[in-house]
């Protein structure tokens, strides 16, 4: 589905960004990318989404090499990035070309992210969690096969976060999308992902790759996952950052 071959993208004389990344993702897989800040996680997503074209190496989707924004890709940012002058039901089909049954699709996705009754609200009237739901619906509406999520829930409170993680899980079960999730929330990665990549260093490199065999949905308090969390914390080597 998605193949990343020896991709590097660095800034400021190779001090930040990431380098030599290799990864191949199967259809329907959920990949978590964990790493402390500054190791190039978000840069990686910008490269994959086509927003950043100045990288070395090759990104391939279904075997064809990607040079610009690819239509099979949908992106959800850390902030909802809604267009403040459009209502919810106009924001959701924003990415559709003019003739694609905008209203019906909007209503369908409003339903699937649980925003019934909010169709005519403007973004200023939405809470952070609701706005992010709209953003999720907006990304889904073009039926992308690969969803890129850049710390999508990091600005939300703990409860909304859990709700939206479950929503994402439901979406994954329904649409079988391939998902790349950049996060710095270890629990989130353990709850949602099939594989977790750990990036370390500046510029970041893949330090470790963990497979989580457990079937989804998983329990949030699962003992096995808790063990893995310990392991991940060790792998991230947080002490090094404190010493800096």
């Amino acid at each position: 589905m998605l193949a990343i071959e020896n991709v590097s993208r660095t800034f400021s004389n190779g001090e930040t960004g990431f380098k030599n990344l290799n990864l191949s993702v199967k259809k329907g897989e959920v990949i978590g990318i964990l790493g402390t800040s500054g190791c190039g996680k978000s840069t990686l997503l910008r490269v994959l989404s086509g927003l950043d074209e100045h990288y070395d190496g090759q990104v391939k989707i279904d075997g064809e090499s990607v040079t610009a924004v690819h239509e099979k890709i949908g992106m959800i940012f850390q902030e909802p990035r809604l267009l403040p002058w459009l209502k919810v039901r106009e924001n959701i089909p924003f990415g559709l070309k003019s003739d694609e049954h905008k209203t019906e699709k909007a209503l369908k996705y409003i339903e699937s992210v649980g925003l019934n009754g909010f169709e005519n609200h403007y973004p200023k009237d939405l809470s952070g969690g609701m706005a992010q739901r709209v953003a999720i619906a907006r990304a889904l509406v073009t039926a992308p096969e690969i969803l890129l999520l850049d710390e999508p829930f990091s600005a939300l409170d703990a409860f909304t976060k859990m709700q939206l993680q479950d929503l994402l899980l439901a979406i994954w079960q329904q649409y079988h999308s391939t998902i790349l999730l950049v996060t710095h929330d270890i629990d989130e990665a353990l709850y949602l992902c099939d594989r977790i990549l750990i990036l370390r260093g500046q510029p970041g490199e893949i330090y470790e790759e963990l497979t989580i065999p457990k079937l989804k949905p998983r329990g949030r308090g699962d003992a096995e996952l808790a063990k893995m969390k310990d392991q991940i914390i060790k792998l991230l080597d947080l002490s090094q950052i404190n010493n800096k």
């Binding site: 927003l51 924004v69 949908g74 902030e79 990035r81 924003f94 990415g95 073009t142």
Partner: peptide, 9 residues
């Protein structure tokens, strides 16, 4: 950030 949304589409 809003312009990027357009670019994604």
């Amino acid at each position: 950030k809003l312009i990027e949304v357009g670019k994604i589409y």
